[in-house]
Every structure is written in C-alpha cells, then in structure tokens.
Design a protein around this nucleic acid. Sequence first.
DNA 1: GAGTGGTCTAGACCACTGC
DNA 2: CAGTGGTCTAGACCACTCG
Lengths: 242, 242
Amino acid sequence: MANESPTFSPLYRQIKGLILQALEAGEWRPGEAIPSETELAARFGVSQGTVRKAIDEMAAENLLVRRQGKGTFVATHSDPRAFFRFLRLIPLAGGIEQSNSIPLECWRAKAGQEASRILGLKLGDPIIIVRRLLEFSGKPVVVDEIYLPGETFAGLGLDVLKDYQGSVYSLFETRFGVRMIRAEERIRAVAADRANAELLRVPEGSPLLSVERVSYTYGDKPVEWRRGLYSTAEHCYYNELG
Amino acid sequence: MANESPTFSPLYRQIKGLILQALEAGEWRPGEAIPSETELAARFGVSQGTVRKAIDEMAAENLLVRRQGKGTFVATHSDPRAFFRFLRLIPLAGGIEQSNSIPLECWRAKAGQEASRILGLKLGDPIIIVRRLLEFSGKPVVVDEIYLPGETFAGLGLDVLKDYQGSVYSLFETRFGVRMIRAEERIRAVAADRANAELLRVPEGSPLLSVERVSYTYGDKPVEWRRGLYSTAEHCYYNELG
DNA sequence: GAGTGGTCTAGACCACTGC
DNA sequence: CAGTGGTCTAGACCACTCG
C-alpha cells in the first residue's frame, strides 16, 4: 500500500532541528564549543554519523564552525571572517583595508507601511533608526540607514554604538542576543542627493550603489532592514557566482 | 615517526579529481547521466560511500546534479535553473518575466593589455567581442559587451548568435564545448553615456549598474570577460548572503 | 521488480590539538 | 597521552523512478 507521509524527514534533519532549537534557546553561546559528536549522539540516541551529517549541514550554513582536534563551535560575528561575509565591498586596487564605523544619528520612530511589512511588525510599533558612516582607510565609502524593531533593541543609543569596538552585528549579538544568520540584498544604481554626496565627498548626482538589505535571525525572522549607499569611486561590490 | 605528507589529501578528494578529469575529457556530455555510484566505486576500487562523498562535493559545486531514483547527471546550462544562477536580476515588482537576448554586433580584435591579462592570453592574441541587448518583457534592461578568446570560439558570429535559441552559455556549451562553471562579478554604479542610454531608453547620465564578470571553466581557466550595464529602473540585482 | 540515489549504523583507523 | 573532528568501509534498509 501507500506511503502515508508526504513530508518525509530523515533522522539527521530532525537532529539538526534539535540542535538548532538548543542553539536558539541559547544553550551554547556564540563562540563557545558545543558538545562533541559522540556526546550528542548519546544524548539523542542516534549514531555518531547521523549527528555528523546534521552538523555538516549547519556548518555549510555558517551556523557552526568545525575545528579539527578542538571541537565544533557556535559561529559568531566577533570572528573577523564573518565581517566580510556581510560586507561585500573590496577596493578596486586590491589589498586589504582598515574599516571604521562612525555612528551619526540614532532615533526612535513608529513603523510605517514599509518598515512594518518588512520587519514583520504592526503599523505604529516602535522602531529604531540608525545612521552611520563607514570609512575605509580613513575615506568615507558607505552611508547606512538601519531600521530595527524597537522591542528587541530596547537599550540601543548613539552612546552604545560609539562605545562598542567591533562590527554592528557583533554588538547585536553580544548586547542584545540577536544573531544575524542570513540576509537578502537588492542592489540598484541611484544618483547621490545633496546630503549623502557631502557625506561621501562625491559630486551631487554621482552614481551610487543602493544596497537594500533584510537580515534574518533563527527561524527566518526578519530583524534588520538596512539601506546603504556605496560610493564605488575606489571600491566595488564583489560577488561570486557558483 | 613522521607524516611526510604536508599536503594530505583524503581518498574521496582524489576520486573527485578522477571524476573531474573524466568530465573535463568529455567522457560524459552535459545533461547525460554518469555511471551509478556502485559502478564508479568498482571502477576506482573504493567503497560506495567514498564515491558518494566525492559526488556530494561536486553536486554542491553545481558540477553534477543528483536525481533520486534516476541517477547523477552532468550539469548543463540548457537547464533553465542555471540561467538564474548567472543572471541575478529580478523585477522590482516581483513575478517572473520572459527574457530575450538580441545580438547587436560581433567582431574580431586583438587582445590589449587588460583583455590579455584577464583572459590569460598573450598581447595581440585574437579575441572576439560581442555586444548584445537583453530584454525583459519586451523592455531593454541590459547591454552586455562580451570578450572571448578567439581560438576557443573560432566559428562564432552574429548569425550563430541570432540563430541559437537559449542562453549564451548554453550555446557555448553545445557549440564550442566550453562549460562555464563559476564567475566573479565586480559591481559599480556608473552614469549612462549617450549610446547606452539610447539603447536602454533612459536619460543620458542616468545611474546604471556596471557589472564586470570573469567566467571560468574547468581548472579555473578564464574563458569570458564581460561588462554589463544594467538599468535598475524596474529591476534590481538580487543577492543572498549566507 | 530492478536499479538508482538517500539514510543509518557500527566499527576501525587517521589527523590534529592541547595538556 | 586523551579527546576531538575527519575518513573509510561494509552492509542493511528506505524512497524514488520507470518499464
């Protein structure tokens, strides 16, 4: 007769779900090691190979990081490698540059039509808006406007942003317990308005990259909406197509 | 005593190399099935699991495509899914559009400084340059200028391009035996010059996306250099950050 | 039903890390 | 040295496709 399960889910995927759940619940913090494969196998009552396959997938999704001989670790934005995963900007000339984030403004507002739709909030829910400048080698290259759900980022202010050393996502992770996992970007070319042209020190009307990003945390929950204007005078957005 | 191999390579990676070699030699054509895992295991004298792991990696790299119950197939650009992998342009409004490639020009030239460096040719080697327009739903959206090594694409001309139904990479694959595997893109914002503005039906000076792409075939050999100008009036470049 | 890929297991052994 | 992830094997069984 028939196979009555239209949604067959292999064992390793269920294990993956359980590990994900523990991760989401904060059982192990970013940067910490999770239990060894053998331990997890015992805990879930499956073979080590099955746990391994679950972890394989999660490592491929950048949720976990394996280090041979040491263990498996919860991925963290404090790791410098994560920085380049989320800012695909490289100098035209090549080489590596020092980057520097300068918070400009930070204020409260109510979610409008667009913000509420994208962030999954109700109309009028509190949101926080941050504007910041990103410099490479001391030159301004990116202006970001960042929209955040007010509830999740309650204590956020200009002072907090200025004090913190490290990337914004690293701050979100350590101070607010929100880990960005993946993001979608929509890129267009626009002309610089007067204010942003001044900030980026380019002529008004210059072509800029407009990069709209929606970031998601566990369970595909959107937690950030961001619009960046990138000056591509000396940099470019780099992308690999596999 | 010591492990004298500083470059340890697991068995499955060597098997991967052998399969890659067969693929490169054209033992199985794009779209065709490769032998079953058990057959390959016997051929290489390893266990089925080892072959499986080799194929796993190659499937992750989009070189092979697994289909349960049917077999494992050589990936092909004739598959419509491959099209979206290499053209990350979607309508702002959402939905799916019909695309249409219109070849404009095709001429021979000698490789200059830049072209020879990027395509790995000698200065003065023959190259072919193609200009084409890409329409979505009947509206012009992309102008491409494509630089190809003349030797590899000897018979290419405007007539061939016009006759062929399907994507350019599909043509390259079936007519010239060249399979694009991966590509790097560098994106900037530029102002439309007069000629391209007319083609794309936007005002002169409008901001456009400049997308420079270098495509590689087996063995990381560069075989295409392309510069596209994308009108982002009604479309955007879409990218997922994992 | 035969053949394919997909899952799961158990056990042996290798490579790397740190004490 | 013990403990971790990484590889390889052999065999059993499941899910899917097609004739």
